[in-house]
Simulated assay, not measured.
Amino acid sequence: MQLSDLKNLKIAIVGAGYGGASAAKALSLLGADVNVYEQANQIREAGAGIGLRPSTMNRFREWGIFDAIAKVSSPSEIFEILTPTGDPIMKEEWPVAGEQTHTHLIHRGDFIDALLSVLPEGMVHLGHKLESVQDKGDGAVLTFANGTSVEADLVIGADGIRSVVRRELFSDKEPVFSGEHAYRAVISADDAYGMVVDDNLRMYIGRGTKIYLLPLRHRNQVSFDITALCPDGTWVPEVTKDDLLATVEGFDERLVNITRDLDMDTVNIRAVYDIDSIDTWHSDSVVLMGDAAHSMLHHQGQGANSAVEDAGALADAMRDADSVKEALALFQATRKPVTDTLQAVSRQGWSEGEIDEVFPGQKPASIGAKG
């Protein structure tokens, strides 16, 4: 689009998470009038650590914010998969051959803080819970629970797995339970029984459980994540220390000790959900991105990375296409085949036989959709 057209374009982004904040940065660099509306009164990111892939870090370099992310993260060179007792299964070097930027390991809270810190003051509006969106063809109107309404030339739904924008305009399908729970905590590296010796991510896998040790050595901490099979699809299930210890039975005794030492009040506990692939992400003036468009299971570590990649692809499309309508079509054509594949691959975390072995006769119906 012409620079003059972009500068006259009013964009409203619903959601100030990774995707929404990244899109706000990328689109504002094009000169568009961007505002972000977030339902929370305070943005706090629960959970633990994630890995930002080289392509994601390269987007930050392109937007001039690489240093802001790098200073609160640790570069990592290797990802290892091991048996429960630490025997090697696979070792992958990252970055892949030919890429010079490293994967960076970062705490989720530090990540969102860094993204929001590079946005202009006043761009993000807190306390705006979306109630409805009206697509008018050449624009859209957002109505919020606080009584305000906003009209924009382009609305971007970056409002997560339970997206109001998606439900109102594109798909009324509910999120799909994976048959797993995720238990996440951040602990001091000093309490990791000597298991954090470098900046490399390690995953221990066996009989229905995966344990991720993701170093955050710039914080002298480690993200300790357990993903375990469980038929309870309650969104925020009640779980005891004994439940956690049962999931790590047979693992390296140091991993068991870390689990035993956890303060349950600091453990983020949730059932793991994604969404089925939806056919259409956009109309002429409204578009979905990130988890709102393609929420996926975390087995491939691609949720946050895909949201940032969406933001970059959307900005590229807005720059290169002749109109908003053409840009949104180009964005979907570019990103949807990629995320459809990632969604499918991420659902292959467990075999049906393994689920039956761990929970005989208790397989949730939704697991059958995992393929």
Score class of each variant (00 low, 15 high):
residue 204 Y to F: 15
residue 291 D to V: 07
residue 14 V to S: 02
residue 47 G to P: 00
residue 46 A to G: 13
residue 19 G to S: 13
residue 65 I to D: 11
residue 69 I to T: 05
residue 2 Q to I: 05
residue 28 S to V: 03
residue 80 E to L: 04
residue 307 A to D: 01
residue 166 R to D: 01
residue 241 K to R: 11
residue 145 A to G: 06
residue 148 T to N: 11
residue 72 V to T: 10
residue 288 L to E: 00
residue 82 L to S: 09
residue 228 A to M: 05
residue 354 E to M: 05
residue 210 K to W: 06
residue 65 I to H: 09
residue 345 V to I: 14
residue 290 G to H: 01
residue 289 M to Q: 00
residue 347 R to T: 00
residue 160 G to A: 06
residue 341 T to G: 02
residue 137 G to P: 08
residue 229 L to K: 07
residue 318 M to N: 05
residue 336 K to R: 15
residue 211 I to L: 07
residue 240 T to D: 04
residue 338 V to R: 09
residue 259 T to Y: 06
residue 82 L to R: 15
residue 241 K to T: 02
residue 51 G to Y: 03
residue 66 F to I: 06
residue 184 R to E: 04
residue 44 R to I: 14
residue 16 A to H: 06
residue 171 S to V: 03
residue 189 A to S: 15
residue 78 I to E: 13
residue 104 H to T: 02
residue 285 S to W: 08
residue 102 H to M: 09
residue 337 P to S: 04
residue 257 N to H: 14
residue 113 D to W: 02
residue 312 G to W: 02
residue 215 P to M: 06
residue 323 S to D: 11
residue 170 F to Y: 07
residue 191 D to N: 13
residue 315 A to G: 07
residue 97 A to G: 14
residue 142 L to D: 06
residue 321 A to E: 08
residue 54 P to S: 11
residue 303 G to L: 05
residue 182 A to V: 15
residue 200 N to G: 02
residue 292 A to R: 00
residue 105 L to R: 14
residue 85 T to W: 13
residue 130 L to P: 00
residue 341 T to R: 12
residue 233 G to V: 00
residue 347 R to H: 09
residue 131 E to G: 14
residue 303 G to H: 04
residue 150 V to L: 07
residue 159 D to K: 10
residue 22 S to C: 09
residue 92 E to P: 07
residue 163 S to L: 02
residue 74 S to V: 13
residue 138 D to F: 11
residue 44 R to Y: 12
residue 119 L to G: 11
residue 353 G to F: 10
residue 13 I to F: 14
residue 1 M to C: 05
residue 88 P to R: 13
residue 220 N to T: 08
residue 223 S to P: 02
residue 126 L to C: 14
residue 57 M to S: 06
residue 354 E to A: 10
residue 270 R to P: 03
residue 290 G to D: 05
residue 83 T to N: 08
residue 177 F to I: 00
residue 86 G to V: 01
residue 304 A to G: 13
residue 356 D to H: 11
residue 278 I to N: 08
residue 73 S to K: 09
residue 235 W to D: 08
residue 213 L to E: 01
residue 302 Q to W: 01
residue 191 D to K: 12
residue 270 R to A: 14
residue 22 S to K: 12
residue 104 H to I: 01
residue 352 E to L: 13
residue 257 N to S: 15
residue 274 D to V: 00
residue 315 A to L: 00
residue 143 T to E: 11
residue 97 A to R: 08
residue 263 D to G: 08
